[in-house]
């Protein structure tokens, strides 16, 4: 018990003194996850709108696949992307393995099905009259779809947050594709695993606290921002 308290104390000191190693690791997590979730959102939201609003063959199968991919194990994604990126793989010439870019590719693959599937579900569950109402008011098809998305904004926010949470806390992809290289690809989760294995509980705990704090802050900021804004201006 005393050991845990001691580690906690050291963790607070590391955070309080803005330890260089701690900041570097945190920044790596932030920019890689931030880039991944942004790319995944940019890809997933239009895809979700198309899936939810268009009728096409195989739509049911696609939605079922997306729902299944939501539970995709991170190590499986890591393994699949690894197979493409390693030296003799299809994309081996690009030398992306063990770089932040490889981590971003893996994380985009992890987050996209979550954001897409949850957004499709939100759009399909939206009031049927929204699109028709917008069209009767002279909206273009694009404006009508933006109105529809705007009306389910909180659910879309939740989808993006779920995607963010999935990749911010994952270890498998980061470890397999990033390689936990110090000052380069070591992020919060790989560092926690590494430091714990080395017996450095205080740094691992401090990183764990930062992970929670950051996830909490991002959640609050996203909810606040997206709830107060709409496509057609503030409420």
């Amino acid at each position: 018990m005393e050991y845990i308290f001691d580690s906690l104390k050291k963790a607070f000191v590391l955070i309080g003194t803005l330890d260089n190693e701690l900041l570097r690791i945190s920044w790596t997590s932030i920019w890689i996850t931030g880039t991944s979730v942004t790319l995944a959102t940019l890809f997933s939201l239009p895809a979700a709108v198309i899936i939810a609003t268009k009728r096409f063959k195989g739509k049911g199968a696609l939605v079922t696949t997306l729902n299944t991919l939501m539970a995709l194990p991170t190590v499986v994604v890591g393994l699949l992307v690894y197979a493409f990126l390693y030296r003799r793989g299809l994309l081996g010439n690009f030398s992306l393995l063990y770089t932040p870019y490889a981590m971003i590719i893996g994380q985009v693959i992890l987050a996209s099905p979550i954001i897409t599937a949850l957004t499709v579900s939100a759009l399909e569950g939206a009031d049927e009259r929204i699109e028709g109402t917008a069209l009767t008011l002279g909206a273009t098809k694009f404006q009508a779809l933006m109105s529809l998305s705007g009306e389910v904004r909180p659910a879309i926010t939740a989808a993006v947050i779920a995607g963010f949470g999935r990749i911010f806390a994952e270890v498998g992809v980061s470890m397999m594709l990033g390689g936990n290289i110090r000052n380069y690809t070591r992020n919060i989760t790989t560092a926690i695993a590494f430091e714990t294995a080395r017996g450095q509980f205080s740094l691992a705990l401090a990183l764990g606290m930062i992970l929670l704090l950051f996830a909490f802050t991002v959640n609050i900021l996203l909810q606040w921002h997206l709830k107060s804004q709409s496509y057609y201006g503030t409420k």
Binding site: D127, R129, I130, G132, T133, A134, T136, L137, G138, A139, T140, Q143, S147, G150, E151, S230, Y232, K235
Partner: peptide
């Protein structure tokens, strides 16, 4: 333009709703 039997109002203010077609 058409007013439906059970009209849908957007999740904004009354003014925001009345203005919506003009914003479009």
């Amino acid at each position: 333009t058409m007013v439906m039997q059970n009209p849908y109002l957007f999740k904004t203010t009354a003014l925001g709703n009345v203005s919506r077609g003009l914003v479009f």
